[in-house]
């Protein structure tokens, strides 16, 4: 086992199956899944957190979602829908929804009710209370949920290669198929580095978005 595959310049050319293109396709799956998952989970989580209705759903969504085996779901979707991007996105989105839903809910529940009361007492309309007070205050919890969703989906997106798509899983699956462990190692390292970098970017974004008063 060695790092030859990773540091071979030939594998960094912009051609089919090269590391940079695999990174791009990997990120493409990750970003799409995060966007779709957020669009679905965020409003539901905020609504449940704001009204307190359906708390049971939000609290248990996390563990229920985690218990779904992503590989099984992926293979089920492929068997039902055929090969392509859609089954992969469905499986990854299902993975992303629980942490975002749960953290949106938890973020809204963590608010100091006196602050919300004060905002209403100052004459803010419900929409203003939500966008000017509740959301900014819920952000720290919400973003940490988003970060853990991102970490999970970066690691899990490797399974896309198991159903013939690209992404960094290709290095793992193909390397394994031909007993090329240097390639497997390259895949593992690049995925881990990608995960750490993405988390770092999100951490910086968090510093920038979240009010210093809430740190």
């Amino acid at each position: 086992m060695n790092l030859n595959y990773l540091f071979d310049p030939a594998h960094w050319n912009l051609e089919d199956g090269s590391i940079p293109l695999l990174i791009l396709s990997h990120l493409w799956y990750v970003v799409l899944a995060l966007i779709i998952g957020t669009i679905i989970a965020l409003p539901i989580g905020l609504y449940i957190g704001h009204t307190g209705r359906g708390s049971f759903l939000a609290i248990n969504a996390g563990n229920a979602g985690r218990s779904l085996p992503t590989l099984g779901l992926l293979m089920l979707m492929v068997t039902l829908l055929g090969l392509g991007l859609t089954p992969v996105l469905i499986a990854l989105t299902v993975l992303v929804i629980p942490p975002i839903l749960t953290s949106a809910y938890a973020g809204m529940r963590s608010l100091d009710p006196r602050v919300v009361d004060a905002a209403r007492g100052m004459g803010m309309r419900p929409w203003q209370v939500l966008t000017k007070v509740e959301l900014p205050m819920a952000l720290p919890v919400l973003i940490s949920g988003f970060r853990s969703a991102a970490l999970q989906v970066v690691a899990t997106a490797t399974v896309a290669a198991a159903v013939g798509l690209n992404g960094l899983g290709r290095l793992l699956i193909d390397g394994l198929a031909v007993n090329d462990y240097s390639r497997v190692l390259a895949g593992a390292i690049v995925v881990a580095v990608l995960a750490v970098l993405l988390d770092l970017v999100l951490a910086l974004a968090q510093r920038w978005i979240v009010s210093p008063g809430l740190r």
Partner: peptide, 18 residues
């Protein structure tokens, strides 16, 4: 712990034999 958790399971499964 965060870094360890972000290693894809597939990679770890493949690697440990080596």
């Amino acid at each position: 712990c965060g870094v360890l958790y972000s290693i894809p399971s597939l990679a770890l499964f493949v690697f440990l034999p080596v």
